[in-house]
């Protein structure tokens, strides 16, 4: 059975993590930030590996944003 996306609190020092996330973008243009975010997502996605978990995360991320259904259901 494949794992479920864990949406329970799971990061030990949440404030610390959040600060680091924002700091990661310091002094970057919007374009550069988008690139850094993309790299981060790819690194984390590879770490997770499980396609069902990734699909679930994409669907939740897209949920309620923009028009239409979530596009994040790659075959």
């Amino acid at each position: 059975m494949s794992a479920m996306l864990n949406t329970d609190p799971n990061i030990a020092d949440a404030d610390d993590f959040y600060e680091a996330l924002i700091d990661m973008h310091r002094d970057l243009t919007a374009d550069e930030s988008r690139l850094v975010n993309a790299k981060l997502i790819l690194l984390l996605a590879n770490h997770i590996g499980d396609r069902a978990v990734l699909r679930d995360a994409m669907a939740r991320a897209r949920d309620g944003v923009g028009a239409g259904r979530a596009a994040a259901t790659p075959r």
């Binding site: 374009d31 690139l35 993309a38 790299k39």
Partner: peptide
């Protein structure tokens, strides 16, 4: 951006 991120 994702394409460039992959290549980087």
């Amino acid at each position: 951006s994702f394409r460039d991120a992959v290549l980087k």
